[in-house]
Amino acid sequence: MSVDRAVMAFAGCMVLVSLLLAHFVHPAWIWLTVFVGANLLQASFTGFCPAAALFKKLGFKPGAAFR
Score class of each variant (00 low, 15 high):
Phe24His: 11
Leu21Asn: 13
Gln42Tyr: 06
Trp31Thr: 05
Thr33Ser: 14
Val17Asn: 11
Phe35Gly: 12
Val36Pro: 01
Ser18Leu: 01
His26Ala: 10
Ala38Gly: 04
Ala28Gly: 04
Phe55Ser: 00
Ala38Pro: 07
Cys49Ile: 03
Val15Trp: 00
Ala28Arg: 15
Val34Gln: 11
Met14Gly: 07
Ala64Gly: 10
His23Val: 13
Val17Gln: 09
Gly37Arg: 01
Val17Ile: 11
Gly37Trp: 03
Met14Glu: 08
Trp31Pro: 01
Asn39Trp: 07
Leu32Val: 14
Ser44Thr: 02
Gly59Pro: 07
Gly63Arg: 09
Val25Thr: 14
Phe55Lys: 05
Ala64Leu: 10
Phe48Arg: 01
Val36Phe: 01
Cys49Leu: 05
Phe35Lys: 02
Leu41Asp: 00
Leu58Asn: 12
Leu58Ser: 08
Ser44Asp: 08
Gly12Pro: 07
Leu40Tyr: 07
Pro62Arg: 10
Val36Lys: 02
Ala43Met: 05
Gly59Cys: 09
Cys13Ile: 03
Trp29Val: 08
Phe35Thr: 11
Cys49Thr: 03
Ser18Gly: 03
Cys13Tyr: 09
Phe45Ile: 01
His26Arg: 13
Leu40Pro: 00
Phe24Thr: 07
Pro50Ser: 03
Leu41Tyr: 13
Gly63Phe: 00
Leu41Lys: 07
Ala51Leu: 15
Gln42Arg: 12
Phe60Gln: 11
Ala43His: 01
Gly37Asn: 09
Leu20Asn: 14
Gly63Leu: 01
Leu16Thr: 09
Ser18Glu: 02
Phe48Gln: 05
Ser44Met: 15
Asn39Tyr: 03
Trp31Asn: 15
Leu32Ala: 15
Gly47His: 01
Ala64Cys: 03
Val15His: 12
Leu19Gly: 08
His26Cys: 07
Val15Phe: 04
Ala51Ile: 15
Leu58Thr: 09
Phe24Pro: 00
Leu21Lys: 09
Leu40Gly: 15
Lys57Tyr: 06
Leu41Ala: 15
Cys49Ser: 13
Met14Leu: 15
Ser18Phe: 02
Ala51Val: 15
Ile30Pro: 11
Ala51Arg: 04
Leu54Ala: 10
Phe48Tyr: 07
Val34Phe: 08
Leu20Lys: 10
Ser18Arg: 02
Asn39Leu: 04
Ala51Phe: 04
Ala43Tyr: 03
Gly37Val: 08
Trp31Ala: 14
Cys13His: 05
Ala22Leu: 04
Pro50Thr: 02
Pro27Trp: 05
Phe24Cys: 08
Gln42Leu: 13
His26Glu: 09
Thr33Val: 15
Leu54Lys: 09
Ala43Thr: 00
Ala43Phe: 06
Thr46His: 06
Ala22Cys: 10
Ala28Gln: 12
Lys61Asp: 08
Ala28Met: 04
Gly12Ala: 10
Thr46Gln: 05
Gly37Cys: 06
Lys57Glu: 12
Phe35Val: 14
Phe45Lys: 13
His23Gln: 11
Phe55Pro: 01
Gln42Trp: 12
Ala38Thr: 06
Phe60His: 13
Ala64Gln: 09
Leu16Arg: 07
Gly47Gln: 09
Phe55Thr: 05
Gly12Glu: 09
